[in-house]
C-alpha cells in the first residue's frame, strides 16, 4: 500500500489478530482488513457499511453486493469490483449473472427494476449527480422510494471504500483470497 502505516502501523493486538487470520484462512490478510483495523476510532465505516449491506431491505444481499461491485466498477476500482463480485456470485449462486451485469448492464439477464437502479447508481458515481428526471424514470419503472434510498446507502458506502482502495493502492490478492473474504462477509457481515 502507498502508506506504510496501513501495512505496518497496527497495534500489537491487531498484529496478533492478523496472524490468527492468516492461520485460519491460509491466506494473506486482505488490504481492506488492514485499512479497517488501522485507527478504527477515526474511520468508522464498518457500521454504516454493515447497515447498508446487511440491514433490512427488500433488495437481497446478492443484489446489494452486485450494486457494490457495480459502484466499484463505475469508480474504476478493480480491487473492490473483484471482491464484491465474488460475494455477489457466492450469494446468488449465479456467477454468470454477475459477470453479465459487469460486462454489459443493458443486455444482462436481470430484472428491469434492478437494471434501472444500477443504471442510476452508475450515472451518480461517474457523473457525481443525477437529476429529478432520472429519479422520476426510476420510480416509473416500479422501484419504490425505499428501494432507491437503500441502493443509495450501498452507493454511499462504496463510493468511499472504492476511492480509498484506489488512493491507498490496495494490493491485488489471488482469486482464492477473494473467495475466502467473500465467505467471511456472507457469514459475518461487515462489523
Amino acid at each position: 500500500m502507498r502508506l506504510a502505516i496501513l501495512d505496518h502501523g497496527h497495534s500489537a493486538g491487531t498484529k496478533v489478530l492478523f496472524a490468527l487470520i492468516r492461520i485460519a484462512s491460509r491466506q494473506p490478510v486482505l488490504d481492506v482488513i488492514k485499512l479497517a483495523k488501522y485507527r478504527p476510532d477515526f474511520l468508522r465505516l464498518q457500521e454504516i457499511t454493515h447497515e447498508a449491506m446487511r440491514g433490512p431491505s427488500t433488495w437481497s444481499i446478492a443484489d446489494r453486493e452486485l450494486m457494490a461491485a457495480f459502484v466499484a466498477k463505475s469508480n474504476q476500482c478493480e480491487w473492490c469490483t473483484r471482491a464484491h463480485s465474488a460475494v455477489a456470485a457466492r450469494a446468488s449462486q449465479d456467477r454468470d449473472r454477475i459477470a453479465a451485469v459487469l460486462s454489459d448492464l443493458e443486455s444482462a439477464p436481470i430484472e428491469d427494476a434492478l437494471r434501472a437502479t444500477l443504471r442510476m447508481l452508475g450515472r451518480l458515481t461517474r457523473e457525481h449527480s443525477v437529476t429529478p428526471d432520472d429519479m422520476r424514470a426510476l420510480l416509473a419503472s416500479g422501484v419504490s422510494r425505499e428501494q432507491i434510498e437503500d441502493a443509495l446507502a450501498v452507493c454511499f458506502a462504496f463510493n468511499i471504500t472504492a476511492r480509498l482502495a484506489n488512493a491507498f493502492g490496495f494490493a491485488m490478492p489471488t482469486a482464492a483470497a477473494f473467495e475466502s473474504g467473500a465467505k467471511y462477509l456472507l457469514a459475518r457481515g461487515y462489523r
Binding site: 458515481t125 457525481h128 449527480s129 429519479m135 443509495l152 454511499f156
Partner: peptide
C-alpha cells in the same frame, strides 16, 4: 453525491 441524489428523489 448521496445528498444530490436524495434531493433529486
Amino acid at each position: 453525491q448521496y445528498d444530490t441524489a436524495l434531493a433529486a428523489l
